[in-house]
Design a binder for these strands. Structure first.
Lengths: 331, 331
DNA sequence: TAACTCAGTGCATACGCATACATTGGCGGC
DNA sequence: GCCGCCAATGTATGCGTATGCACTGAGTTA
């Protein structure tokens, strides 16, 4: 391995000068910088991130904490996040909460991550307070917990849900079912609340028996829709906690030979690329997930530099995208 | 930050003894180990991976080199790979080739990765030779390059394609089109060859004009299918380089109002979870992607320990899964 | 011209852990 | 009862980089 000492020897300077020159320290003369850069180039030297991390006590690696990596939602988070981090000279490492390598907070400390992005926080999660106690910077992404203040990047469902429900009511739906997300997540709660408030404005109440809850995954939508559609008098429309749930519901309907939107209408939330497919055409609530992911990346990098700055709360607006899974209720 | 020195002080031993005790070195007495463990526990100590990496000259981080993180294929690679690496006490870091942080090989060196998994190698890629020259262990995943010998985990398309084409021919297809993968990838080449050989066995040749090529993505299938279906006399079936391409083709057909498999049959390769959806029911060639991903993880970890062992070549068999996108040709 | 300044560079050291080597003490063999 | 051996632990050091401080010499000021 080629070290800064090798470069120093070739350039005829000391190792610290190499370190300073390559980081463009103003205390090094231009002539020396030039010479050092040439030597580094000639040797194919690239500074050891490990040595640097040990020395400065902080790495350039950011953890992304998720639970279900196979969930269709995450690629559209990971990709832009990774790209933005790379642009900022940082790396992305994946962490799952079911970490066999022990609790997340300890893992982060042990591996010297400069911060983490929490993408699957539950309202009652102790992770945020553990991270705060340990002094690990973190950012809430998509979901938040109440307990600990921190930077957050979230979605405000209100406008999108408002538009969605106006369309639904205009089309004549009265008997509405729902498969909401987990009640211990902020996204689950907020979306449910937005729906209830909007429905209230139209004088509609969800029947208790038409409301289901579950994780934001395919299976929840799949099993939930089967449950609702097996009824003798199912609702005429199913609101889903997110698009992945809606995809599960759509497929359940297909399996049962129930026409969408002829027999049942289905609504999602997220507007994933898959929802735009001609074979899917899911009516859903959209927001800029790509920009959100990038912003979370920028926030965590900035936070690592300024641990004590006031938390930033970025909230993204939503809007309704009408496609082909919402029609008139069966007469 | 709590270091091994703190633990040493509390346990009344020297720092190296802490290091040895916590790694279960047989040279430390059980009584001391016990005492050290208790001290570490009491202080909430977790060893710094950075310090260790610097000291032993090697980290426990594995890079996964991919190009298109949003491709539906990768979550099903990343998830099991991540899980297996975690089980082995390693981390997964994502690397894209279009690295703004410079060439991949340098990046790997600089960040002290203990190895990389190459998931998007092209046949003419110089990366493998760069890695070899730099002494960075790597594993070919799914695709290989000819140039450099290394561990590899790949798929043998022969059996699956054989079964697929028997079904196709049995149903009476003669005029067959194809949207193959890139010609500069081993997977693209091998699958094309398997198809041509199998077709040959049935006395069928692909018409040159019915064969398209492109990256393994949605757009390739989407545009390719539109091209083929716009013909006055399109083929009766389209073989796709992989499932993501087939999904693009299916959606193109849906947009054009072309019935599948009534008007056109479509075949894929990979058997992604999405292909099993009731709304998709893609007939395709399957293999155990999950096991492959885990094996790649195990191989790279083993390789980091034994850089000079003979390369392992794991080859996974394929089989045909008949679903609903292949029917009889239109009469 | 002597004292002073400051840009530019080198020296020494720290970061946290692992490891080669030195040291200690207890025990068995003769 | 002396020597030697081995188990158990400590000492010293290295990994590659960053940084506080000391130093040098050229230019500036009085």
């Amino acid at each position: 391995m080629i070290t800064s000492h090798d470069v120093a020897r070739l350039a005829g300077v000391s190792q610290p000068t190499v370190s300073r020159a390559l980081r463009d320290d103003p205390k090094v003369s231009d002539a020396t910088k030039q010479r050092v850069r040439e030597a580094a180039q000639a040797l194919g030297y690239s500074p050891s991130a490990i040595g640097r991390a040990l020395s400065v006590g902080r790495s350039t690696r950011v953890g992304l904490v998720v639970t279900d990596l196979e969930n269709q939602f995450y690629p559209h988070v990971i990709a832009p996040m990774h790209q933005e981090l790379q642009r900022l000279g940082h790396e992305l490492v994946l962490i799952t909460e079911s970490s066999e390598s022990g609790p997340v907070a300890e893992h982060v400390i042990a591996h010297g991550l400069c911060g983490v992005i929490l993408a699957t926080t539950t309202l009652d999660s102790i992770l945020p307070s553990r991270l705060r106690d340990r002094g690990v910077p973190f950012v809430y992404f998509n979901r938040t917990a109440q307990s600990v203040a921190a930077d957050s990047v979230t979605v405000d469902p209100e406008q999108g849900v408002h538009e969605l429900l106006r369309d639904i009511v205009d089309r004549g739906h009265i008997r509405i079912g729902a498969i909401f997300g987990p009640r211990n997540t902020s996204t689950g709660e907020e979306r449910e609340q937005a729906v209830r408030v909007a429905l209230d404005g139209h004088g509609i109440t969800l029947a208790h028996r038409d409301v289901l809850y579950g994780p934001f995954d395919f299976r929840t939508g799949h099993e939930g829709a089967r449950t609702l559609l097996d009824r003798t008098d199912p609702p005429t429309l199913i609101l889903c906690g997110n698009d992945v749930v809606a995809l599960g519901a759509l497929n359940a309907a297909a399996e049962l030979g129930v026409a969408v939107p002829g027999d049942i209408s289905i609504a999602g939330f997220d507007d994933l690329p898959t929802s735009r497919w001609a074979l899917i055409r899911l009516s859903t609530v959209a927001y800029d997930l790509d920009a959100m992911s990038r912003e979370a990346a920028r926030l965590i990098v900035a936070r690592a530099d300024e641990p004590d700055a006031a938390p930033t709360r970025a909230i993204y607006p939503t809007h309704y995208v009408a496609r082909a899974t919402i029609g008139r209720p069966r007469t």
